[in-house]
Design a protein around this nucleic acid. Structure first.
Lengths: 134, 134
DNA sequence: TCAATGCTGAAGTGTCTACTTGACTGTTGA
DNA sequence: TCAACAGTCAAGTAGACACTTCAGCATTGA
């Protein structure tokens, strides 16, 4: 079934929206840092945060909907864990783009070095590739 | 001067806010993907996006304020470039947390394997470290 | 010279976000 | 049994966000 693949690709886009949005809040990043050192309860996550418990719960929901955190409730305590898989997918998106630019800049540097000019990318420097949009 | 260091650390937090927020929008990520293949003008970045040019400009501003993109104007054309350094700092934040969890899970797996139980992290499994919060 | 191009700035609008308070439920330990 | 605890749910609010339209301003190519 082809639709499944397309749907999966579209979901990946929406997933990245949620993941990066979850990461964009300093309080949530603090929670993730705490969780990187081991599982924790909701109220434990909120302890350093100067906000109501209800607000903390909402942040945990954002983290959980993004897939960055998984949790399970035992008795009255909800224990949260960091999910490294989701963390990895965000990391991969960034590193793929970064390596592309870096490689391009490397090629440009080599080109400039072997041609004559100074080794920085000038505004109207000729591109080393044939592509005129570079 | 000690305050300089503190200020720098606080700025790093605010910077990550801006970077991850910039990354959380699918349109802006599309722009970054285009820029990973080479510099581009503002209107070129907006071409695949089905929104007004003014909106595109606002997105470019968000990207530029986050440090992900740098731009310069020549004549009437503003040329944008992806800044790999900022991309790297976001990537590093993620990978540092990810490696912490993964290492912890690895240790737990080894512990469970050499003790007796099945190799998955059960909800009430005993922790391999002395720390009772694990 | 003049119209088209590429962008900028300001103001307006609907929606989303990050909280708050307060009332409530199930769990635990004394 | 009963109070303290851990979390949940719902509703309300101020501010942020992602757009829009419209007016304006250099720059450029014919």
């Amino acid at each position: 079934m082809r639709g499944g693949i397309l749907k999966h690709m579209l979901n990946q886009v929406a997933d990245l929206d949620r993941v990066f949005h979850a990461l964009s809040d300093p309080g949530r990043r603090l929670m993730l840092e705490r969780l990187s050192r081991g599982p924790a309860s909701v109220s434990e996550l909120g302890k350093p945060l100067a906000m109501s418990l209800a607000a903390v719960v909402q942040h945990v929901q954002v983290l959980e909907e993004s897939g960055l955190v998984r949790s399970q409730k035992l008795g009255r305590i909800r224990t949260c864990r960091l999910n490294p898989v989701t963390l990895r997918s965000a990391e991969r998106w960034i590193s793929e783009r970064r390596t592309l630019v870096e490689r391009r800049l490397d090629r440009l540097g080599e080109y400039l070095a072997e041609t004559a000019g100074s080794p920085d990318e000038g505004p109207s420097a000729p591109a080393p590739q044939a592509n005129p949009t570079q």
